[in-house]
Simulated scan of single mutants.
Amino acid sequence: MVVYLDCNATTPIDPEVRAIVLKYMFEEFGNAGSRTHLLGTTAKQAVQQARESVAKLVAAKSEEVIFTSGATESNNIAILGLSEQGCVTHRKHIISTMIEHKAVLEPLSVLESRGFEVTLLKPSLGGWISPEQVKSVLRDDTLLISIMHVNNETGVMQPITDIASQLEGHEAFLHVDAAQGYAKDIATLQNKRIDMISVSGHKLYAPKGVGALVTRKRGYRHLPLKPLLFGGGQERSLRPGTLPVPLIVGLGVSSELALLKHKSRLAYCLDFKKKAISKLQSVGAILNGDQSRTLPTTLSLSFPNLDSEAVILALKNIIAVSNGSACTSQNYKPSHVLTAMGLPEDRINGTIRMSWCHLTDEPDWDEVVSAIKKLY
């Protein structure tokens, strides 16, 4: 049986989550907006419980959680939703990085076309942005800083806490795309200076099609976000439309389980990573990214004298891996993340990504090593 090692693309659904999703899909199937009968009330209560669970994980308030279809939509609301505020206040400068997901880089390009100025910071060879870099380009007219929590290709965590401290006394909004880090690196996202957090359910053992945008109040005021869609008034009118109750409940249970089982999950993943590194380095694998800053769920590694597609093909009957972001896997251009880090072309071309979780079975590493050796 092929072992799935592509959890950064999407995770399996946790059995406890699957059970509750099916319950609210086939038994408690009411519309959370229906107020005249018990099924509607039950659905509304379930959504509220999920909202509280998502909020608790990042030390936010339930009314600060907006449910969306996933981190891509959350990123778009967080970035494009501030457009009017930038125009009104004449603050049209934005800071981000060269290694962001396309779900951040493309909305930023839209704002550039509207007259905003975007500064993209270059990462170190280790794949991270320093707080001093952010401080050096911060201006009086900076509206937004958008920096990912964990890179989806390398697993490198950005120093969000230290970056947030550089913003003390500045009014700029701080947005963190936490698609890869939410529920895995919990303490970082509880920092009150983070204004917005994007979450994606299918990266944390919940179904595809659900996510959240946490929008922390400043004082007693909600952030000055404007909706991208209109009609219905749901989610404070920031994300109108009938709520997908089963998916939302699944996201809520995933968040609850993350708090409950955080330590044991990370311990399993760390042990898994150590074994993988030991075996793969024996056949010449070079690790990409500063390993002291990576989550224990991801490995970006290069086989400099081999093409990544050849490696993936050789391993296809043993393990399922990728050579970069799932969202751009149909595009065979070199990784914009590894390129921005300054890795040489042969190393980029030989890079594969392995990512796993607490639900991942350990593969036969000796079989993996043997398949790679045959390529030399």
Rank of each mutant, 00 (worst) to 15 (best):
P227D: 04
P227A: 08
P227V: 00
P227Q: 07
P227H: 03
L228H: 03
F230H: 13
F230A: 12
F230V: 12
G231Y: 06
G232Q: 05
G232Y: 03
G232L: 06
Q234I: 07
E235R: 00
S237W: 07
P240G: 08
L243Q: 13
L243C: 12
L243G: 04
L243A: 14
V245H: 09
V245Q: 09
P246D: 08
L247Q: 13
L247H: 10
L247A: 14
L247P: 00
L247T: 01
I248P: 03
I248Y: 04
V249T: 09
G250P: 08
L251N: 09
G252Q: 05
V253Q: 12
V253A: 12
S254K: 03
S254T: 06
S255V: 08
L257C: 10
A258H: 05
L259W: 05
L260P: 02
L260M: 14
K261D: 14
K261C: 11
K261A: 09
K261H: 15
H262C: 10
H262G: 04
S264T: 14
R265D: 11
A267M: 10
A267K: 14
Y268V: 14
C269V: 00
L270D: 15
F272M: 06
K274F: 07
K274I: 15
K275L: 08
K275G: 07
K275V: 07
A276G: 07
A276H: 02
K279A: 15
L280K: 01
L280C: 01
L280D: 01
Q281A: 03
Q281S: 12
V283P: 04
G284T: 02
A285S: 03
A285L: 12
L287V: 02
L287G: 01
L287A: 00
N288E: 11
G289P: 00
D290W: 01
D290T: 02
Q291I: 15
S292P: 02
S292D: 14
R293I: 03
R293P: 05
T294Y: 06
T294G: 04
P296A: 06
T297N: 15
T298N: 15
T298R: 13
T298E: 14
T298Y: 09
L299P: 03
S300P: 10
S300E: 12
L301K: 09
